[in-house]
Amino acid sequence: MQAGAGPGVFRGPPRLQRDRTARHMSAILIVEQILNGLQFGVMLFLMAAGLTLIFGVMGLINLAHGSLYMIGAFVAAAVAGATGSFLLAMICALVAAAVAGAIVEIVVIRRLYAAEHLDQVLATFALILIFSEGTRWVFGSFPMYLEIPDYLSGAVTLPGGIQYPLYRVMLIGAGLAVGLGLWALIEHTRIGIRIRAGENDREMVAALGVDISRLYTLVFALGAALAGLSGAMVGAIQSVQVGMGEPVLILAFVVIVIGGIGSIRGALVGALLVGLTDTLGGVFLPELFKLFMAPAAATSVGSALASMSIYIVMSLVLIWRPTGLFGGRA
């Protein structure tokens, strides 16, 4: 990619000019970092939406949601490797995650709806172990290859002269589109009406003759599909490896808890808040501390605080509003 350019070609500009460039860059840098935070937030939203939906409708804490994200990424890598088609890989990832979700729901999860949160945590924790090592058994111990297709690679120039990767622009767009689709599904379709009804009153829905167990399977598969899709999309710019789902899972939980569990709108707000806090905190906290500390100490205190920042935000939100920003019930 770049070493071929050789030395000398990208030599930095003379010092004076560089200072001016640096000041000009900083405004662009801030905008670019905000875009990065936005993109991160949108991807988190895809994960969190499924998680919050499953909790809202079925009252289930699903720790294995990260595993479905991982399955999406691995299936996408395998399909893209075999066929060379990125689009097909995304579709297969979505379908595979949905199918895996449906199977898990039928075999395991539906026995847990009546159980305590504690049992749900343990059972889905066990599912993580099974999925992670099972994936390693099937796909081997090395990371898999999944890359952005040519037509989505490279950078585009946004208004204001900001260079930004096309693929990340696409991620933001795709994430928002899926979010919009989800909203339309829930607000304007028959299934959506049933889902909303299921959130409010399970017995009533069942009494009205809706096949509640099929509805649950459907909702679970839908959440799984969203996780699988985001895993596949993110997999193209990250490492597709066993265990990739857990860090995202924790963040997705942070998101839905901040937003209020069960609330899609809350998940969106929470996701953007977490995405922006994490990205901007990592960049600007060390700079902030440099204003009144020695650079080395500022870097270490700043980055330490940055890695804790989202958890601090979350606990502040919960101390202020114990059921999250948009949450009704615990």
Partner: peptide, 28 residues
């Protein structure tokens, strides 16, 4: 004019993929 990174395991994979797509051309 050059970037040196040490990011073992999956961290390095993620960085290189993202860097290749960023339009930044500084050699690594």
């Amino acid at each position: 004019d050059s970037v040196y990174f040490f990011l073992p395991g999956g961290m390095g994979i993620s960085f290189l993929k993202q860097y290749a797509n960023s339009g930044v051309e500084i050699p690594v």
